[in-house]
């Protein structure tokens, strides 16, 4: 049976951003997944985690370790994305100045998630929240 890890992500707390991705990385190393695949998985997960921290109130990250792949679901309660196609464009960003001065918010998050995942689904409701589901095969 697939092993599942769950994490709570707190909006606005950049000091904790990456904790979930870091734990997932350790798990993947334990499982003996290839280095370049691990990197694709953790970069996509970290970008998604950062999105929750930068934009949402809170979120939940679920990582499901299948024998041949990992499925990651990130669901948040927050402002949602008005235009997903636009948000997928490189350089588009609604990040605040504070976030930019921390080195984030360049509008490369979602495009980078797409680049690193094999399957990606985004659902969003303005004023409610966003849900990302991604699959990466080992």
């Amino acid at each position: 049976m697939a092993e599942i890890l769950e994490f709570h992500i707190k909006g606005g707390d950049f000091n904790l951003a990456g904790k979930a991705s870091s734990k997932i990385k350790k798990k993947l190393i334990q499982l003996g997944v290839e280095t370049s695949t691990i990197k694709r998985i953790v970069v996509a997960t970290y970008e998604a985690e950062l999105n929750v921290v930068a934009h949402a109130r809170e979120g939940k990250l679920t990582a499901i370790f299948e024998p041949d792949s990992i499925r990651i679901i990130i669901a948040d309660s927050g402002p949602g994305i008005e235009d997903i196609d636009l948000a997928m464009e490189a350089g588009f960003s609604t990040a605040t100045k504070k976030v930019r001065e921390m080195g984030f918010g360049a509008g490369m998050g979602l495009p980078n998630i797409r680049k690193n995942t094999d399957e990606l689904e985004i659902e969003s409701k303005v004023g409610v929240g966003t849900r990302l589901e991604m699959i990466i095969y080992y």
Binding site: A17, G18, S22, Y46, G103
Partner: peptide, 15 residues
């Protein structure tokens, strides 16, 4: 020129 915890997290993910 960045010096914050996110920098370390980021380089962790980016190897």
């Amino acid at each position: 020129g960045l010096a914050n915890v996110q920098l370390i997290r980021t380089v962790e993910m980016a190897d």
